[in-house]
Amino acid sequence: MSGALTILSAGPALSLQDLGRRGYLAKGLTRGGAADLRALHEGAALLGQAPDCAAIEMMGMGGTFEADVDTVIALTGAEMAATLDGAPLIWNASHALSAGAKLVIAGVRAGTYGYLHVAGGFDTPPEMGARSAHLTAGIGALLQASDSLPIEASHARPGLFLTPEGRLSGGVIRMVLSFQSALFSDATRARFGETVFRRDPRANRQGVRLDMAGDGFHAEGGLSIVSEVITPGDIQVTGDGAPYVLMCESQTTGGYPRIGTVLPCDLPKVAQAPAGAELRFQVVSLEEAIAAETRARAEIKALPSRIARLVRDPHDIADLLSYQLISGAVSAAADPFATTGEQP
């Protein structure tokens, strides 16, 4: 049965996102898509579906949602306080969402971009091969209260859980040198590697500005560099010497020099770092970068095999009466499945 998920109230930056659009660079359009691509894969693994299904990306805070058919949702990415008809929901898990139940997703607890996935994906008409809003290009728009997104009734399995790769609090970001790195002196690049940056609150899907104590970073050639291709992850240094990590909705070309490029597998960590979080950059060799990226891709492929049951289904428990059921209760505030080092 076809139905809809209606947004009853919306945070300031909700948008529909998928893997984005490829093939339009020559026309001036970057890929766009989810700021944290890994979260899209995690949601797909939890719901047992393809990673190109569209999900709602929620920057900083969520909203209130209601479906008119029974479905199953998954919550991934930045951890947010979520309740279903008042009962707390665990993040990084799949949950049944019955028709008429109220799903409330409040402010972020850790990270920046949370994702609300629905079984089968949101079935809006694709534009230019994708359902993503590309806000800087004017494709699609932010989601607002009273928007309804088409979904299908589904019996995907609720109560599944995934321990995500920790990426919500900044840290060390690996980068490779790129074609403009040599425009910066060795001393400048060394200082860049030693600097502790903080994510500036001015950050969006286009770019993340980095703050630091001390002088800015300047290229030898100054500002007279011919405009060149930009790829997501490029670390661009603007006129005032402040670096920006360029993200999924960056421009396709730019005239400010790039000191290097963040590895694609570390880009979700940059996207998710909350305002004020510390970020440091470590240059790795091409070989190390290829090894790290290959490992990360293998991990994403293996996500479905890492799905665990959140709460055991009574039908699966042969000796139900021998269980002390109450001790299995879980709270969204204390995450019993978190592994060490991943606490916000």
Partner: peptide, 28 residues
């Protein structure tokens, strides 16, 4: 030159010029 892990850049000059632009167009 290498562009991160995402490709290669063939460059026909360090500043805008008519021949370099034409070269890039034809080469692409």
């Amino acid at each position: 030159a290498r562009v991160g892990l995402t490709g290669l850049l063939v460059s026909f000059g360090s500043a805008m010029s008519e021949p370099a632009n034409r070269a890039a167009l034809a080469f692409r």
